[in-house]
């Protein structure tokens, strides 16, 4: 391959690790693209960018980006990232993990990080099931939809993630699908500029599991379905944005919350300075 043929993102990815592990039609590669676009536009030095993930398909994403990247244990990406950010507030720490990782096994850490308004960007790739283990249902699987462990349809209501994050006091909350790559990139950039907890939910297809169980032929078909159901509404009432596309409910997207609240790092920094006796 001549230098001419290098992908424009060559310097930001671990080229030697491609092709990636994800299935054909998986949206995670698009999320990676969008993240890299956001990083380029944000102007934050590349050496300060840190990616942390838990376990799962999405959690493989940091391994493909050429930044300091940490693949940790299942559900524990947020506390790991919390430790990093507090120990070195210069870092721009982004947690990118799946819905199962962040909200099922790691739900407790999520609510506490949001409550603290910890200075993290948390990107949740929501594919409505546990992809890596074969498509079992989780707390984001829509009502009545099928999965490897709900063969008769799911009877559990889902989390309304933007509403949850907003109620906990997150500084920034948005939701996009991977079929909105430009909006998503802009949203990630805005999250990086936010002081405090920034949460982005990204809807992504899972063609061999959730897609297959619910009658979608491939990733493109599944994604087109979400896209056709979606409406952008930045001022949506967050109580109403839970995802239930199989019963005619629109998938509401947008930059829902963007507010200024004192962040944990700001307050902690003040505390340390006071304790050390440093005058302002």
């Amino acid at each position: 391959m001549t230098t001419e043929e290098f992908h424009p993102k060559h310097a930001l990815i671990r080229d030697e690790r491609f092709p990636n592990v994800w299935c054909p039609g998986c949206g995670l590669g698009i999320l990676l693209q969008s993240y890299l676009n956001a990083v380029e536009k944000s102007g934050i030095p590349l050496d300060q960018q840190v990616l942390v993930s838990g376990i799962g398909c999405t959690a493989r994403l940091p391994g493909y980006a050429k930044f300091d990247s940490y693949h940790t244990t299942h559900g524990r990406a947020i506390p790991f990232a919390t430790g990093m950010k507090i120990a070195n507030p210069e870092l721009k720490v982004t947690v990118v993990s799946g819905d199962g990782d962040l909200f099922n096994i790691g739900g407790n850490h999520f609510i506490h990080a949001a409550r603290r308004n910890m200075d993290l960007v948390v990107i949740c790739s929501n594919n409505f099931n546990y992809g890596m283990t074969g498509g079992q249902h989780g707390s984001t699987t829509p009502l009545t939809s099928r999965s490897a462990s709900t063969p008769y349809g799911n009877v559990e209501p889902t989390f309304n993630l933007p509403y949850l994050a907003s109620a906990l006091g997150a500084s920034y909350v948005s939701r996009w699908t991977v079929m909105h790559p430009r909006q998503l990139a802009k949203s990630i950039r805005m999250a990086m500029e936010t002081k405090g907890f920034a949460f982005i939910e990204v809807l992504s297809p899972c063609p061999p599991n959730f897609g297959k169980f619910n009658g979608f032929g491939d990733g493109f078909e599944e994604m087109e379905f979400y896209r056709s159901k979606s409406t952008v509404q930045n001022d949506a009432r967050l109580e109403d944005v839970s995802i239930d596309p199989f019963h005619g409910k629109p998938v509401v997207l947008g930059d829902f919350v963007n507010r200024k609240r004192p962040s944990y790092i700001m307050l902690e920094n003040e505390l340390v300075r006071k304790a050390m006796g440093v005058k302002k």
Binding site: G83, M84, N88, A275
Partner: peptide, 28 residues
């Protein structure tokens, strides 16, 4: 805090252990 260090009371011991490993990877 008096020594310029950082203290955080986490939500559980799982989080505590993850946080100290994270902090160590960030140099502390």
């Amino acid at each position: 805090p008096k020594l310029g260090g950082h203290f955080i009371e986490m939500e559980d011991e799982i989080g505590s252990m993850a946080a100290i490993i994270g902090a160590s990877n960030a140099g502390a």
